[in-house]
Computed example of a mutant assay.
Amino acid sequence: MSLQGKTLFITGASRGIGREIALRAARDGANIVIAAKSAAPHPKLPGTIFSVAAEVEAAGGKALALEVDVRDEAIVRQALADANEHFGGIDALVNNAGAIKLTGVQHIELKRFDLMHQINTRAVLLCSQAALPYLKKSSGHILNLSPPLNLATKWFAQYSPYTVTKYGMSMLTLGMSEEFAAYDISVNSLWPQTMIATAAIEFQLGSRESFKHARTPAIMADAAHIILDSSGRSITGRLLIDEEILREHGTTEFSHYRYEPDSNATLIPDLFVD
């Protein structure tokens, strides 16, 4: 399995899972477009588009760092055109950028809901639409970082605004897989079985204490690699869990993905996973 010579356009790739997917593909010799807002260092979160571009190059890939706000249609369309021009095509779009606020309807500010809707749901539609002319030529992939459609009421009770925007991504996955079948484009979603240890989670929770109950982003990167390396539409229209797709392809041992490999602490399931 190899993504050598393939071009991946990854939103939100300056840190966390997006960065890990970029580095995993870079080890194959892939071309990576790091499309994120993080052009300047964040005071509390590590990583910029330029630092990840350097890491991609060091890992054996080729990099193009583009400052992209996925809410801005003109910027998104220009970024995809620039990526296509730079690398001579686009083989995969990874919609990884996301926004989260675990607040119910009663207390959420409309501007925060608008932000989540624009970055989670609307950006998947926009980026996929903008990438479509290039993916038609490559019979490529769209991968959305969104959950299974688990309609248990507990996922709506406390933070339905966030749930709605993430489920919107997954519903777009199902719709685009059918709509783009004529172009041999595969469209899937990927979500972690357990909490993933990222700087964004640390920032939101205020500490790394929960990391002993988490896995590293490497498990998501390895799962994404399987999907993006699949041929034709052999994998499409699926709302996949990282552990599920890895098991389907022969992985039976997952302890090395733990943030603390020697810990016996119980792993915490991610949101929307029973």
Rank of each mutant, 00 (worst) to 15 (best):
I185K: 05
V187F: 07
L23T: 03
F180I: 06
Q78R: 13
Y134T: 08
V94E: 01
K62W: 00
A99D: 07
E243Y: 01
R15Y: 06
Y162S: 12
E109S: 13
Q78G: 07
K101S: 14
I119F: 07
A131G: 11
T198W: 09
I119A: 04
L149H: 11
D262K: 15
E202P: 02
T103C: 09
H42L: 06
K37F: 06
A25M: 04
H107V: 06
S160G: 11
I235H: 01
Y167W: 12
A26H: 00
E243G: 01
P41V: 08
G206I: 12
V33S: 05
N188K: 09
N144W: 06
G98R: 08
I235Y: 00
I34N: 03
L271C: 02
H225F: 05
S186D: 01
V94N: 02
L190T: 01
I196W: 00
L126A: 10
C127V: 11
A223F: 00
G140R: 03
R208L: 07
V273E: 02
V56F: 08
A200Y: 03
M195N: 08
P269L: 02
S2E: 13
L110Y: 13
I17P: 00
A83C: 10
A74W: 05
I235P: 01
H107F: 12
D82Q: 15
S255D: 13
I226M: 00
D114F: 05
A79D: 09
S128Y: 03
A97T: 03
D274W: 02
K212L: 08
N96S: 14
I49L: 12
E57I: 10
T266L: 15
G232P: 11
A53Y: 04
R208G: 14
T252N: 09
L228I: 10
E67V: 12
K212Q: 15
V70A: 10
I196A: 04
S146E: 04
V70N: 06
L126N: 04
D69Q: 02
A223P: 00
F180K: 05
W191M: 10
R19N: 03
A83Q: 02
D242Q: 02
S2T: 15
T236K: 05
M171T: 14
A25F: 03
I235W: 00
A221G: 14
